[in-house]
Amino acid sequence: MITVRNVHKRFGSQVVLDNISITIEPGKTTAVVGPSGVGKSVLLKLIMGIMQPDSGEIWIGDDKITSAHSESQKNAIRRQLGVLFQSAALFDSLTIYNNIAFPLLERLRMSASKAHEKVLAIAESLSLTPYLKNHPEQVSIGIRKRVGMARALITEPKVLLVDEPNTGLDPLDGQEVYDLINACKNQWGFTGLVISHELPEVFQVSERVAMILKGKIIAEGTPSEMIASADPAVQQFLNGRTDGPIKIQ
């Protein structure tokens, strides 16, 4: 569904992604893991077409977003994507209702009355009905993430991108987001790409895992293959040790 091929990205002299290739299979969820600052969010922004790679190609389905030059060409491809951002990235000036309705009204330019039913339906299935009149800063981060999920899924995208599902959350709220992702997977059946540094927690939502280190993919496989991996860097990251090939900067 998503193919990343030989992607390079650098900022000034800092090489962030160095020849990355990943295939995200349709209907499955892939976790891209690695320590903080390794370029996971950058990869996500490249896939969304918000940043351009220095070289390499990125395909979403049959569309190559890296060769879409105008914003409107990119927008046509982005229709297939829903994104749940790291801190939900809700619009503070809008109520939760209007945040969820936003993609319908502004992206699909649906009439307010048509959007209304869809918003109520998705709010019901994600237990957000009591909060619809609130503003984002009035609810907990766990609820904001659920609102972000509703906003991402209301246009029924083929692909859901999730950046760090549980940063800033306590273990219970974090677990709730994983449960939410699994529940949504069953209900909407999207292709998923989850970016995370939380191992092994992220394995519970993923069928495939790829690990990035120093700009390269160093390991790829199913969660159980990763757990059984002999790679010292994978083991170090899984067990959260400070000694090993991964250096803490």
Partner: peptide, 9 residues
């Protein structure tokens, strides 16, 4: 990331 969110939508 609200500006990125706009663009992604």
């Amino acid at each position: 990331e609200q500006i990125d969110a706009l663009r992604s939508m």
